[in-house]
């Protein structure tokens, strides 16, 4: 029982980590709390639903959803936040603007497509499972794990080891000085929005796959988890988000398995409050500038 729970928890946590990575990257570099981020998650799931309904396989649906979400993120960020960044508005301003925007986006999508839960075509899911020592892992779970590892690894490579990543880290620390170096900070902001959006969109597809339930407001519930993960991991901390995401997945699955399924969110938020009381800078508590 326990090994199976742990495996399920890690797989769920991998998706949480993936989702939170984009959110924490956005905050770490662009210094905005962007609540529309949850909508990119919903958008990714819906794009995958449309693609698979049209007969496309998951190998087409996942990249298509990620790219589409990335593009949506760039457009939303440019429309909503460019002005705020230019005016050096504080984080509360971006929080309020994006809160309004995301509620409008969810409502518009629900009005357009209906609020009901949609399911992916059965052929997409691949219900075959591998069993090892009594631990059962489905194909969908393997895909979730593989995609999460590839995307998270790609992000770490981009930020830590590529030339563009150096520009991203420079902009994260001091956008004015980065501009003086000849870095086009607006383009870096767009790139970061795009990358974050692709991570959210991919997360939407994977969660849609894991629970086989896609609906307009799915990003809202995920956003709450995203907050728990980035606060546990430390706002803007990529490594912290990875660890905290896995941790949250395991905690939720164990709570559901050994206590009660309805309690898993209560436990998650109790931990959040506890961390904010005792370690407000997150579990690792690194200074903000060193996190990206």
């Amino acid at each position: 029982m326990l090994p199976q729970q742990l495996v399920n928890g890690v797989l769920l946590g991998a998706t949480y980590a993936l989702f939170a990575l984009g959110f924490t990257l956005m905050f770490g570099v662009l210094r905005v709390i962007n609540l529309t981020y949850g909508f990119y998650f919903t958008a990714g799931a819906f794009v995958a639903w449309f693609v698979t309904r049209a007969g496309g396989g998951l190998w087409l649906a996942l990249p298509a959803a990620a790219l589409a979400s990335g593009v949506i993120a760039v457009v939303v960020d440019a429309l909503l936040l460019t002005r705020l960044r230019r005016a050096r508005a504080d984080e509360l301003a971006s929080l309020m603007v994006t809160l309004g925007a995301v509620l409008a986006l969810y409502a518009a999508l629900a009005a357009l497509l209906g609020p009901d839960i949609r399911r992916l075509p059965p052929a997409v899911l691949g219900n075959e499972a591998i069993s090892l020592d009594g631990v059962r892992v489905t194909q969908a779970q393997l895909l979730i794990l593989g995609a999460s590892v590839v995307l998270a690894g790609g992000l770490v490579w981009l930020v830590r080891f590529s030339r563009l990543g150096l520009a991203i880290r420079a902009v994260a620390e001091n956008p004015d000085a980065a501009g003086l170096m000849g870095i086009d900070t607006a383009r870096v902001a767009a790139l970061v929005s795009f990358v974050s959006g692709t991570l959210a969109g991919a997360g939407g597809v994977l969660i849609g796959l894991a629970f086989n339930a896609i609906h307009p407001y799915m990003g809202e519930a995920m956003m709450l988890r995203g907050f728990v993960v980035v606060i546990l991991g430390g706002l803007g901390d990529i490594f912290g988000a990875l660890v905290a995401g896995l941790l949250l997945g395991v905690i939720e699955v164990l709570t559901a398995g050994y206590l009660a399924s309805g309690l898993k969110e209560a436990v998650a938020f109790a931990i959040l409050v506890l961390v904010l009381w005792t370690r407000p800078a997150g579990l690792f508590g690194r200074p903000v500038a060193r996190r990206v």
Binding site: E173, L180, M181, D184, A289
Partner: peptide, 29 residues
Amino acid sequence: HRIAALGLIQVPEGRQVFAALTVAENLTL
């Protein structure tokens, strides 16, 4: 960034080195 690319380079007040980046990375930038 366009002005910098044309060769007008400013050493800003208060130095503004990228504190979290290494000396080598600062020079690369």
